[in-house]
Design a protein around this nucleic acid. Structure first.
Lengths: 199, 199, 199, 199
DNA sequence: TATTAATCGAGACGGTACGTCGAGTCTTTAC
DNA sequence: GTAAAGACTCGACGTACCGTCTCGATTAATA
């Protein structure tokens, strides 16, 4: 789930931003975040691992927290097409997160990014912006459609639905530090919709 | 929800552990945690604010994360008596958390402690031990009783129920950084039980 | 006391070296050197002040120290004609330095250049080459003539004479940071010759 | 020529300043200064070489320049007793400098300290304070005595005499970077007094 | 008149060092 | 004994500068 690199430009003096350097920094960030956690995360270590200059890091990211979130978001695959079934469409929105948490050190990277988002101003904004664009808005569409067809109640609170969907994953990854079984997220989706089922 | 102070002793030379100092350190911890977050949290600042020596802090806590969790747990009131109704008994277990999150800077302290628990080995153990004693075990009892009476299904996973109960609160406090409305937790309890309702 | 610009060429493709840029760089160098001293001197600041590219600076000077010396030497006026009197001829060789030190921020520029010459390999060579050409050689001629006429002793050491002439100025500018009074240098010349007077 | 360590205290909580650390820092400073010069001098390198913390360095010295001067002054031996002869007494004041310049890497250390004193506010003050105490004041006494006995003229300028004494040494060490022969300083003393000789 | 080679401003980049802050340990004094 | 005070080493912070490189534009000699 890529974010903007900000390299777009029409014509300007001097060399363009090095995409190579950017990718190396994000990869190093993921490794360091997974190994040392959020408080133990060190920009120096990232710079050294990525053979990059700290200057370059601080130039392109507003804070190291934002960089951590960026690095994690780059790991999340694009959502698959959910077809017509509302239940499937909602599941499709959150399975990429589950997939990330279940692959390699993805759970540790996600945990680091979530901590960064909770602890750092900029990181929180980046994370919520991503959530808004990739989860909240699409889900609002689906839920509105379901509500109009009386499949679910009309008085749901969008944010609370999202919390019921993502909260358990968060708790598992961050607090329990236990593995995420397959289908964990899709099951939460089924539960959540059942809660709001009309009658 | 106090934790052990470790001051119990039969007879030993010299003065006992200063309860005054311990309280000042925990209070300073809460303030610093709420003001500067987890990554910005500093032992030096706590020591200065509490007029304590760093030595004293390191003497009594295995890690600063554990101290943060201790400081937050000291803020959580004891659970009220839930009576006989299972629904009420479960609600009673989690409303202290909601109450803490809704009082003063409690949400920020809780957030700091949760981040510490997710990021720091010792802190995570302290937090999970508390959860196990004050939430998980009591809830296991209630749920077992409900299952035996066929009020809920028998095949629930205790940890997943807990995640459905606490996850949303976490997500709200840490990710959304939005206020927690009254009844948020008890509603999650109602939802969770509905999910596992028999039939 | 100008040094070679290195722009002489017979025929070559492309534009010639920009004299405008060179002058702007040297002027910026003088200002920065006077303001920030030798250790605080920054190529970036010179480039920005002169609206020049760092590339241009590194292309034309072997080291920043050499550039500092160049910038200072450009400030030293040509020596006046000393006439026939040996005393006057020697005085004429060093009064340009005194004049520079007594004009505007000349003392600070001179100090910066001297520090550069003492601290930097290239700068030292540039400075000593200038000294050799503009002070040492002419003085050798005058002193030899005086020695042949038995006005001064024959066993003087040229470099020690120069040190007696320039050392005090140096000490005043660099160590005492006190103003240089008019006639300071010519008086040193008179003293030095008196030291070596025959008889 | 030691300077105050500032470790004097009657009674205070906490450990005293570590003399061991202070000595290691000064020795490392001398080595680094001699090897890399003033502009190339690095606090990091000193800290690493002395196995000291930068914190400790910045705690006890107002600037790195002052530290460099301190390190050099510690190398200058105490002045010998000059006896009764005024000429000898003056010579005795400056031979320690010559001796330092002629021993080991003393010339490079002295050069570094002189550059620091010329380039750095604090360093200059430290150097001039030392000069005032160990050279200027004693010399003022001797010269006053000589003037009262009509051995020298009465209208000399103390600072100019000092410049004539020390300037040549400086010029040799810093600009010429040539070795200092034995007797260089005492000869300058003889010259200077001859200049101001009555009649 | 194109082509070509050089110059120049702008600025991105990997590094090194800056001066500050915090972690965790140790030492001294006071109680 | 406990605790406050604080010095110490080590490492990371975010910034500044160094010296090299790349880019786009411009300028002058050559073809």
């Amino acid at each position: 789930m890529s974010t903007d690199t900000g390299t777009t430009r029409k014509s300007r003096k001097g060399p363009a931003r090095s995409e190579e350097s950017r990718a190396a920094i994000l990869e190093a960030t993921r490794i360091e975040l997974a190994e040392n956690g959020w408080r133990g995360f060190s920009v120096d270590a990232v710079a050294k691992r990525a053979s990059a200059s700290k200057q370059t890091i601080y130039k392109w990211w507003p804070s190291i927290g934002a960089m951590c979130v960026d690095a994690a978001l780059a790991l999340i695959p694009d959502a698959p097409d959910g077809g017509r079934d509302p239940q499937e469409r909602i599941t499709a929105l959150i399975v990429p997160l589950e997939a990330t948490a279940r692959t390699g050190n993805g759970h540790a990277v996600l945990r680091g990014a979530l901590l960064a988002a909770a602890d750092d101003q900029h990181a929180g904004e980046v994370w919520r912006a991503w959530m808004n664009r990739d989860i909240r808005q699409p889900m609002r569409m689906v839920l509105a459609e379901m509500a109009s067809k009386r499949v679910i109640r009309r008085d749901f609170d969008l944010d609370e639905v999202i919390e019921q969907l993502l909260g358990p994953l968060w708790h598992r990854i961050c607090v329990m530090k236990a593995p995420v079984r397959e289908g964990f997220c899709s099951e939460q989706a089924r539960y959540a919709l059942r809660i709001y089922a009309a009658i």
